[in-house]
């Protein structure tokens, strides 16, 4: 790529130097260039350079793991925007959501996007689990990745559940009341667990700030770390490919 005739035009030479310093290789003209491009690009090196042809048929993975990850990224970005407006206080939270809906530019669409992507992610993660099971992709050597996947499923549910409380409307508070009442039934730890989760006996300010911190910091962080390990293992254990 460096052999491009740029002499005589200092501007093009400069542009070419800048471009070349960022992207080490040009568009893939041969397999070898394509392989180098994938190896030297941070965002692409998550992939192996080559994969079995049968493994990337859309009909094989149905894109479900990838879509789950995509939704996670989308949720992170849209959630970041929501955070600019949202204050986790029982006095302000509801009004903040109203403002998002009616005042903030694109606030409504961003909120909707965040909500529907969250529901979508619960569905894609479930379906991804089902496809992994039906293809027996949990069998050795991938036993451990299946276990990590189980925790990812739980994290996904908890992320969605903790976010449910934040709008502080009737739907939110009572869904969380019903949900956390389930925790109460565990023999000894139950009531304590519920108290710990809610920071009190009822769903109030204590619960709101706890759910908020779980939702925007703790759970996404744990989820992200688990995903990184998950992807690493997909590569190291090899991808299953056709049956």
């Amino acid at each position: 790529m460096s052999a491009r005739p740029t002499e005589g035009n200092p501007l093009r030479a400069f542009a070419s130097q800048v471009w070349g310093s960022i992207f080490r290789h040009g568009l893939p003209t041969t397999d070898k260039v394509a392989a180098r491009t994938a190896l030297t690009n941070f965002f692409l090196h998550i992939h192996p350079v080559r994969v079995k042809k049968s493994a990337i048929r859309v009909s094989y993975t149905l894109c479900l793991g990838g879509l789950s990850f995509f939704l996670f990224i989308l949720l992170t970005i849209s959630g970041l925007f929501l955070m600019f407006y949202y204050i986790p206080s029982v006095d302000q939270a509801y009004q903040n959501i109203k403002d998002l809906q009616f005042v903030a530019t694109f606030g409504l669409v961003i909120r909707n996007l965040h909500r529907w992507a969250a529901h979508g992610m619960v569905i894609t993660v479930w379906l991804h689990m089902a496809r992994v099971f039906y293809q027996g992709a949990y069998k050795p050597p991938r036993e451990f990745n299946w276990a990590i996947g189980t925790f990812l499923l739980l994290i996904t549910l908890l992320l969605s559940f903790s976010g449910y409380l934040l709008p502080w409307d009737q739907l939110a508070v009572w869904a969380i009341t019903v949900g956390t009442n389930m925790a109460k039934y565990a023999p000894i730890a139950g009531p304590y667990t519920r108290y710990l989760l809610l920071g009190g006996r009822n769903v109030g300010q204590g619960a709101l700030i706890r759910f908020y911190v779980l939702h925007v910091v703790a759970l996404p962080l744990i989820g992200f770390i688990l995903m990184v390990i998950h992807f690493w293992r997909v590569r190291k254990d090899g991808f299953t490919g056709g049956l």
């Binding site: 029982v90 509801y94 959501i97 109203k98 809906q101 409504l108 909120r111 909707n112 965040h114 909500r115 529907w116 529901h119 619960v122 549910l157 969605s160 559940f161 449910y164 709008p167 502080w168 409307d169 009737q170 739907l171 939110a172 508070v173 009572w174 869904a175 009341t177 019903v178 949900g179 389930m182 009822n202 769903v203 109030g204």
Partner: peptide, 23 residues
């Protein structure tokens, strides 16, 4: 639009009170 009901009111229990669908 994503649902947004009345502001939370711990004195009024909606009937039925349901958990999020996945629960």
């Amino acid at each position: 639009n994503a649902p947004l009901l009345q502001r939370a009111n711990t004195a009024i229990t909606p009937n039925p009170a349901k958990a999020p669908w996945y629960f």
